[in-house]
């Protein structure tokens, strides 16, 4: 589904160059729920921004569904973002002037595929994520967890190949975090979505099939959940993080 090979990215601040990604390679299979963890400055968000082509990578390749997206031109990139990728941001990025339902419909409207079916799709997503009661409200009128579930529904409306989530629980309390993670799990099971999530939160990561831990711009370790219970996997993650801290 997603293949990242030898990805490099650096930033120039004044005369100093900071190399943030130093040759990251990873794979995400279809229907997988993968998290990326790591300390601040390890390159998690930069990796996500490169994969979504929000920022250009210096080197390396990013292949999505067999298509090399790092070399696409502006219009093709827009098409990929709209049809093949779904985004969930830490601060939701819902448009305040649109209702929950209209926000969910936005990717479809942008694609110019507005038909009667799209509203039915949006309503069914509202049902899946338990936000039917608030679908006619504006973002200012709903809670953080509801906003993020709306964002997840919006990310799924075009049935993308991959959902990219950047700290989706970063701005939420534990109850709302749980609801959002549940919505990801539901998206995977009910809709077969593939999810690639950047997070600091070991609890959120413990729901994933696999966790890639970054350190100083390289993949330090990849942990698979396998047959473990969620809580055991969370302990494994915490042990790994502790171990990384000691090195």
């Amino acid at each position: 589904m997603l293949s990242v090979q030898n990805l490099h990215k650096s930033y120039q601040v004044g005369k100093t160059t900071y190399e943030v990604l130093k040759g990251v390679s990873l794979q995400v299979g279809e229907g997988e729920f993968v998290a990326v963890m790591g300390p601040s400055g390890s390159g998690k968000t930069t990796l996500l921004n490169c994969i979504s082509c929000y920022i250009p990578a210096d080197n390396g390749s990013i292949t999505l569904g067999g298509e090399e997206i790092a070399r696409l031109d502006e219009d093709e990139l827009a098409r990929v973002r709209n049809r093949k990728l779904g985004f969930v941001f830490q601060d939701f990025l819902l448009l305040d002037g649109l209702t929950v339902r209209d926000n969910i419909l936005l990717p479809r409207i942008i694609a110019g595929q507005s038909d009667a079916a799209m509203e039915a799709d949006a309503d069914s997503l509202c049902d899946v994520f338990g936000i039917t009661a608030i679908r006619d409200k504006y973002p200012a009128e709903i809670s953080g967890g509801e906003k993020q579930r709306t964002a997840v529904a919006r990310a799924l409306i075009n049935r993308p190949l991959l959902i990219l989530a950047d700290e989706p629980t970063g701005n939420l309390d534990s109850k709302s975090s749980r609801a959002v993670i549940d919505s990801f799990a539901q998206a995977r099971h009910a809709l077969g979505a593939t999810i690639f999530m950047v997070t600091h939160d070991s609890f959120a990561a413990s729901f994933c099939d696999r966790v890639i831990i970054l350190r100083d711009g390289v993949v330090w370790r990849t942990l698979s959940k396998g047959e473990q219970e969620r809580s055991a996997f969370q302990d494994t993650l915490l042990d790994a993080i502790r171990e990384m801290g000691k090195e």
Binding site: Y54, E74, A78, V80, N82, F89, L93, L95, L106, I110
Partner: peptide
């Protein structure tokens, strides 16, 4: 800029 950024992130083309 915020709404424009959201549109771009969701795949709107600059032409649109």
């Amino acid at each position: 800029s915020r709404e424009t950024g959201v549109f771009l992130a969701l795949g709107a083309s600059r032409h649109q």
